[in-house]
Design a protein around this nucleic acid. Structure first.
Lengths: 219, 219
DNA sequence: GTCTATAGCTGGATAGAC
DNA sequence: GTCTATCCAGCTATAGAC
């Protein structure tokens, strides 16, 4: 059927198999969740032979790990410059909105959530997902730390923790979406409202600012 | 070995099988995640025969649905009175801390997160998890709505959305925990800090309060 | 209601031809 | 590198003895 074995460099009938398997793994998780993943289903989506997963990666788990790693590295890199250019909470919220919409659209959040769930009792996968999430949170944390310097919020909010809470919120809401779409959307909106609150508080006038700082200190 | 078949009412060597299967299902998810769940693993944990799952519930899925339903109903009922007695954000935060600690300890959050992940592409399970989460969010939403009346935050924060965002945050962080314990704890702390921020803002003096309300209106 | 046994299937993984 | 064929483990679900 296909002209397999053709090795002229210009042909590229399909991307090389290894890559197609990685993409297929991602797509399979996105569509059916980790529960629906197997060597056979992935191979089916990738249009490749099941045995090739073991030839190229050694095991199905190892393929999932690679899919996780590759996606995170690529996507985080895609936003690095934009995140570095952010100078206030308002801009961060705007970027956050866009970033989340883009990643959701691509299915990256769903896949991350599913991998995270699958990592329960699977140390190899857990390590990979941890690394992937670490790439995201490190970037966000850096921006938050920069913005919080000199803010009345700096005594209250821990950048590292907030970065993880926001990531976890996205992940949790994405899972929620499969069970209750409208509820998840309302939750998403609330997350934005909290962002607006941070922004508003951060931009308070000197008087209100001092009152707030005093209140925070007292706790 | 065991004196099976003994039907004297006082014996109760073990709780009735149906209940042990529900508990076993819960425990299996908690320990190994949805990925590790099967009729055999559940039966093993429950100390029962695998075939009894199909006799009592018809399918493994149906057993998971029942475990989800039973746990949620029981636990939400457990907090209803306390939630109804809450009259300010400070008390809500205190209760929230305790509630979350208790539920985490019991494994209820982990199980919910795992079921949520498994609900992807499993409509029957999705419906059950949706109902379970609905019980929680309905209670939280009610308290939030009550507390927000008259607060400068009422124009900004939607109780229904916030209830879902908080639930999703807990769920997401619980998943996170399997991959990165310290990170998840930092995230949890940040969630509390946001709670404190709500509390502080809510209790602001009239002057700062007015400044804040004006800022919020402007957006 | 509970057990054993088993049918029938899907899954991970490997051997070996090409 | 890719394909076919296959082994074997584990799974759902049912039949039937007790």
């Amino acid at each position: 059927m296909l002209d397999r074995g053709d090795h002229r460099e210009g042909v590229r009938r399909l991307a090389d198999t290894r890559q197609r398997l990685v993409d297929g793994a991602f797509e399979t998780i996105r569509r059916h969740g980790v529960a629906g993943v197997s060597a056979r289903t992935i191979a089916g989506v990738a249009g490749a032979n099941q045995a090739l997963i073991f030839y190229h990666f050694g095991s199905v788990d190892a393929l999932l790990v690679e899919a996780c790693r590759a996606t995170a590295a690529q996507r985080v890199g895609h936003y690095r410059d934009e995140l570095a250019a952010v100078t206030d909470f308002s801009a961060l919220l705007d970027l956050g909105r866009r970033l989340h919409a883009e990643e959701r659209e691509l299915g990256n959040v769903t896949v991350l959530a599913q991998l995270l769930a699958g990592a329960q009792g699977n140390p190899r996968l857990a390590e990979a997902v941890n690394a992937a999430l670490g790439l995201w949170t490190a970037e966000i944390e850096q921006v938050l730390a920069r913005l919080l310097r000199g803010s009345p919020l700096s005594d209250l909010v821990d950048p590292a923790g907030l970065a993880r809470a926001v990531s976890a919120g996205f992940v949790g809401l994405e899972l929620y979406e499969a069970a209750d779409l409208e509820g998840a959307e309302a939750g998403m909106a609330a997350l934005e409202q909290l962002g607006v609150l941070l922004e508003v508080v951060d931009e308070l006038g000197p008087l209100a600012r001092r009152a707030l700082a005093a209140r925070i200190k007292r706790r």
